[in-house]
Write a protein that binds this DNA or RNA. Structure first.
Lengths: 245, 245
DNA sequence: GGCAAAGTAAATATCGATTTTTTAGTTGAC
DNA sequence: GTCAACTAAAAAATCGATATTTACTTTGCC
């Protein structure tokens, strides 16, 4: 069965705000703002407010919100509008484990199927990330850039996986995980370890050593998740709400 | 037919078609029609057609479709409307394995946390299902009823799980899996084995024997998935498309 | 003063009409 | 005959206005 021709290849997929449709634009903007915390967990998403913020009409906004509700970033409350889905320590843990499971599946498949192009994508993405990791600055724009390149690298690693549903769910969970990472600004610290893990990931991937990759990714994700829950605990910052209506 | 006694505990309070909002109604109707195959894979979902079919305006329909796109049942094509997401042998396999993974996680958690109420729910749901399984008839309405009670039973089993995201993803995948089961009418056959597995599942669950439950559910899901892919192979019926934008 | 009912303001949900884009069909030049 | 530019019809996306529903505030009663 033919693969989607145009969707995969490009490393720098997201962020294309130049979409022709308002709905698409709204979806991307909202997603970005929720993931990076500009729209805080539990916040009521009033249509008028969003209309002002993005200069997009109510209809496309509602469609975008519905879409995000399907992904679980937003909660749709019957007759009472939408709100940013909550975050909690328990969910952080849940998400972390799911991310690990899905990432492992996707990586295994990708390592088996990856061809030369894949290899090139991985190497390119790694160097791009590595460059950003070296210049550690707690500045905000840089943090965004780092997160973007991190996404890009992990995406490249699994980009040869042919299991569409695994990738789909992985995408949903990855975004949630990123949201938690960002909430608990764990970036500047431990950068050393994380960088080393990325390097190890690259090496093991290029060797097609599945077990090694799994071992590294497990440490990598578990460490991150641990840091997130620790940060949340000390923050005491929580909110509730389910991930579905 | 009166519905399940208490559908609360879990995130997915389905089945309530009497919702006040058109969007909710549309979401449920569309979901049901896609899962049971009334709207076939790959079908273009034209707004006018849906308006006639459900007597619901375009705006709520579009919102419902966006929601389903987030869940992966529907594909949203920029500026070219929506279509029912495709089905293929490869995806059947992918979905099957994901369902297994997620079901295991949810079951483990549920078994540990389940209280008396949970036990009651499980037993009730089992008997309800068992009654339908006994009267095997290939008639259509009965098939729907069977699938409904099957859903109800499995939902009851995991209903004590407190991992919201696991449940959310499990829900998405369960629906897809059901869709495949239905596409390849594997119901009437093998009913014997399936029924036995349900019984084994019940017993092991009430014993809180995690490993036994995992063993049974593994056989159960793998068998089902195998039957689905076999049926698809002989059917030769496939269609493509990705599950993400 | 506290509580409940009524009324007002705010926000959501939905419709109908308009604009834009895509798809299909046709014509005409090479 | 093939391809491309143009045109007409269809469909999708979006806006603006209206109808509902919810949230808030005031008022009247005990």
């Amino acid at each position: 069965m033919t693969l989607a021709p145009d969707l995969q290849s490009q490393p720098f997929a997201e962020g294309v705000v130049g979409s022709r449709s308002q709905t698409e634009r709204a979806t991307q903007l909202l997603r970005a703002d929720i993931v990076d915390g500009a729209l805080v967990p539990g916040l009521k998403l009033k249509l008028e407010m969003l209309r002002d913020r993005y200069d997009i009409g109510a209809a496309p906004l509602r469609e975008a919100l519905s879409r995000l509700a399907g992904e679980g970033l937003v909660i749709a409350q019957e007759q009472r509008g939408f709100l940013v889905s909550g975050m909690s320590i328990e969910e952080a843990h849940d998400i972390g484990e799911l991310r690990l499971m899905l990432e492992i599946e996707a990586l295994r498949s990708s390592l088996r199927l990856g061809d030369d192009q894949w290899q090139t994508r991985v190497i390119t993405a790694y160097h791009w990330l590595e460059r950003a990791e070296r210049t550690a600055s707690p500045e905000d724009g840089h943090l965004n850039e780092l997160e973007r390149r991190n996404l890009n690298f992990h995406e490249a690693l699994v980009s040869a996986c042919d299991r569409r549903w695994t990738l789909h769910l992985r995408g949903i969970v990855f975004r949630q995980h990123e949201r938690y990472r960002r909430l608990s600004r764990i970036h500047s610290r431990k950068n050393r370890q994380v960088s080393e893990e990325h390097r190890a990931l690259l090496d093991a991937a290029l060797e097609r050593d599945e077990d090694a990759v799994v071992a590294v990714i497990t440490t990598h994700i578990r460490r991150t998740t641990k840091a997130v829950t620790d940060a949340l605990k000390s923050l005491g910052a929580e909110s509730q709400t389910t991930c579905d209506d």
